[in-house]
Design a protein around this nucleic acid. Structure first.
Lengths: 226, 226
DNA sequence: TGAATAGTGTCTTTCAGACAATATGCC
DNA sequence: GGCATATTGTCTGAAAGACACTATTCA
């Protein structure tokens, strides 16, 4: 069976396409996200997820990686496409479709840079966010859900930690993302049984207490379990 | 700390944005996908995933729903965004970014329609696909992985079945998507323990054998378990 | 009565979760 | 020796997976 439908012509003007990147890290025992304060209208003075146009020669992922590099000065970070947001009215200026990515950077000193159309850049704990521009609150919510669910069945946590870490640091990553306390014995039993980690022969240079053994991920890449 | 980076200006011309939709159904005990035979260059004569431009006034999801309606003549189907594909060279004509969706339609007679730039539309079992245009083989692969994983932890199977169905039909849905046989007793025990189904007082009008009880989903919407 | 599918129970293993005491290094 | 964190095991309940026979209807 065959029928003819009316064609949809190419629109007179294409929508603008941007890539927005949520850069997450763990700081001060909290999950934090990098935001910029907008220096131009619309939403001048509001905080927003950093992003920019996709250039003609680059892929979406390359555009996202460039954004992370410009924003946080880091390369080789975990970067994954999140979702594409395209409500017709999401940008009052013109039709804009944004492909959102999220990046995970290790909890070390990350130097945020403000871009030209941003007055300021800063980390915010995801539990204490300022009002966000555009539909960025939706995007952030989507990212937090993805992060929680991926943490449960994959090894993404490696991307938030330095190469060597204490098991208690790894547990803290799980706790701040899942937003609940975990039992130490059960956590260690489960995480070690996954066979993703190996103990190193080093211990940390901690404080006035028993030093902890340092572990590392056997592979510093995403592995799914379950 | 603050640094100034060079701005990325808006590109002289925006990329084209399309929505492609993988329409899946179960036919002849196989997972099948609707494809169109391209009537125009490039890839004239190749099979492709149906799609089209996003119109100025519609959201991405509305564009995808319109595509399903035009292609398969059905509304109210399960529809979910899959992934956005944007390799710079994926369309030889011009920079084109496609937001891929997938739809699940019940295994009843679906009347496929060819659009104007398609010579023909047809169902293909996903295990016997023709060569596909553009990067559509990648898109299909991504969809199959998503479908398998969502089947395991959500109730999407409802969208592939009529309102009332035999448990053996439901099991078949799982088997053809996961591409492996399942044990009948374990399958029934597990699926019934999820408390998503309810038995109706009807049995099917089957053949020369004991009739099967018909079940239905308590809620015809996606529910996640695990 | 034979063909075809429907329908059902037990056992074993694995995993998750509740739960508390001892060990070690540093000051 | 006191403090702060590290490290470790048992029990219980739930769920997954292996596995085979009886029931029912129709031709």
């Amino acid at each position: 069976m065959m029928a003819i439908r009316s064609p949809q012509p190419a629109p007179a003007q294409n929508p603008a396409v941007t890539v927005d990147v949520l850069v997450f890290t763990i700081r001060e025992d909290a999950l934090q996200v990098a935001l910029i304060k907008r220096g131009i209208e619309p939403f001048k003075g509001s905080w927003a997820i950093p992003g920019g146009f996709v250039l003609p020669h680059e892929s979406l992922e390359e555009a996202a990686a460039r954004e992370v590099r410009e924003e946080a000065g880091v390369t080789d970070v975990f970067l994954e496409q999140l979702y594409t947001f395209g409500r017709p009215d999401r940008d009052p200026r013109c039709r804009t479709i944004t492909v959102a990515y999220y990046a995970l950077v290790p909890s070390v000193h990350i130097h945020l840079s403000a871009s030209t159309d941003a007055a300021e850049a800063s980390w915010f704990p995801v539990k204490r966010l300022p009002p966000l521009a555009f539909d960025h609150a939706d995007i952030l919510q989507t990212a937090l859900e993805r992060l929680k669910s991926k943490l449960e069945y994959s090894s993404i946590a490696y991307a938030l930690l330095p190469e060597r870490f204490r098991l208690s640091e790894l547990q803290k990553v799980y706790e701040v993302i899942l937003d609940r306390k975990l039992d130490k014995r059960n956590f260690r039993k489960r995480i070690l049984s996954l066979d993703l980690l190996e103990a190193t022969d080093q211990v940390d240079a901690g404080g006035a207490h028993r030093p902890a053994r340092l572990y590392r991920f056997k592979e510093r890449r995403i592995v799914s379990f379950d």
